[in-house]
Design a protein around this nucleic acid. Sequence first.
DNA 1: CTGTGTGCAAACATTTTGCAAGCAG
DNA 2: CTGCTTGCAAAATGTTTGCACACAG
Lengths: 147, 147
Amino acid sequence: MQNFEKLLSKFKLLLKENGLNFTTQRELVLKTLFNYLGHFTPEDLHMLIKKNNPDSNVGVTTIYRTLNLLESNHIVTSISFGIQGKKYELGNKPHHDHLICNQCGKIVEFEDPTIEELQEKIAKMHDFKLTEHIMQLYGVCKDCQDK
Amino acid sequence: MQNFEKLLSKFKLLLKENGLNFTTQRELVLKTLFNYLGHFTPEDLHMLIKKNNPDSNVGVTTIYRTLNLLESNHIVTSISFGIQGKKYELGNKPHHDHLICNQCGKIVEFEDPTIEELQEKIAKMHDFKLTEHIMQLYGVCKDCQDK
DNA sequence: CTGTGTGCAAACATTTTGCAAGCAG
DNA sequence: CTGCTTGCAAAATGTTTGCACACAG
């Protein structure tokens, strides 16, 4: 999912299938997530949208509702980042986990197939059928260590 | 840290060192955490304490304040369990992670040194100095699969 | 037109804070 | 006594809901 048009079509299709309408607000949320690839709280998104679209008038409520809608359709993913709160990211990347800097809040993504395998093994040992997992490494990034 | 007396002494010492007082409420919180080893939200604890000590009168506020105090002294640890919210557990066990059942909410603890090593390796690759990490595997436990 | 979507305000749930009164040392 | 602690009520957050109006199809 490299370009916005594709993503938008997918979203429109999903809406249609569920008898929902395509609206400016919903498009704005999706577009903002796409343009500022990253991790946002609903409030972050709200402010970003307002800043970039001063003429539009999108309420926080709509952000929450749209994010829930997008999440249940697996277009975005939500993750809880401790003190930073619950954040959303566009779910168009392969599965990955996060490294978080305690000082500046920077979030770095990484993948590690070996860990994924180990997780499966552990789940099996305890007779769990795994559905998802969260792995977050907290620490201090290079930049902050140098300060 | 296998018995309550030891834990209590440690706590009292800590209080003294910081010029804080030892009070019934603080003891109750610690005792409850010790007696019901598990994972509790502040509200869980509040209710447990009230139920087991009908004569005492401990406010939610105190629970929060005491948990923060215990956490900053590394006597308890807090973990965010997604929809289940933030929970606290006594920090007297070696480091471990959690398997959580999406259906019944059961929480199973496990350890895996290999994963710990891999996490260190990943942190190093990204020039992070690791301070802590969170790993939670969500799935369906044996009991719930059988239903 | 009809039904879905929206913003607003109010309701909620959870956690924090200000304060006067209550205990520990 | 002195000052740390407490419970209460109020405030602060973050999120959800009810409702009348607005808009998409």
